[in-house]
Amino acid sequence: MSELDALYQEIILDHYKNPHHAGLRDPFEAEVHHVNPTCGDEVTLRVHVADGHVEDVSYDAVGCSISQASASVMADLVIGKPVDEAMAIHENFLTLMQGKGQVEPDEDVLEDGIAFAGVAKFPARVKCALLSWIAWKDATAQSLEAQS
C-alpha cells in the first residue's frame, strides 16, 4: 500500500462522506469551540454526560477529510461508554497519533480508529486527527465540572 493509501483508508473516506453523529443536539452540559490555527479547521462540539456515562457527543465541524472522519469515529467510540473508559480510549488514540507510525493500533479498543494509524506518519496531519478528540476531552471535563 502506498503511504497515500495508508493515509486515506477507505474507512476514513467513508466516515468523511457519511459522518456519524454530526450536527449539534440537546441536551448538553458543555459546548466548546476548537480551532487548528495553522490550517483553520474548526469544530464546535457538545457533550452530554449522565450517570457517569457519555450519553451524547454532537458536533459541527469544518475541515479536511482526516479531521471530519476523526470526529465521526470518535463519536462512535465514546458515545454510550462510561467516562473513564472513554478517557482511556482517548489516551489510546493519542498514543497512536503521537507514535510516528511506530505504534501498533489495538483494534479491540479503537475499532474504526485503527484506520488512522497511517496518519501518524504525516506530522502535518496529526493535528487534524486530534482536533475533535481534544475538543471532546475539554467538553467532557467541563460537563463533569458543571455537574459537580
Binding site: 502506498s2 493515509l7 490550517c39 477529510s65 482526516i66 496531519r125
Partner: peptide, 11 residues
C-alpha cells in the same frame, strides 16, 4: 478539502 488536495499533490 484543500488539505486533502495538497496532500495528494505532494504525493
Amino acid at each position: 478539502h484543500p488539505h486533502d488536495i495538497a496532500q495528494v499533490l505532494d504525493s
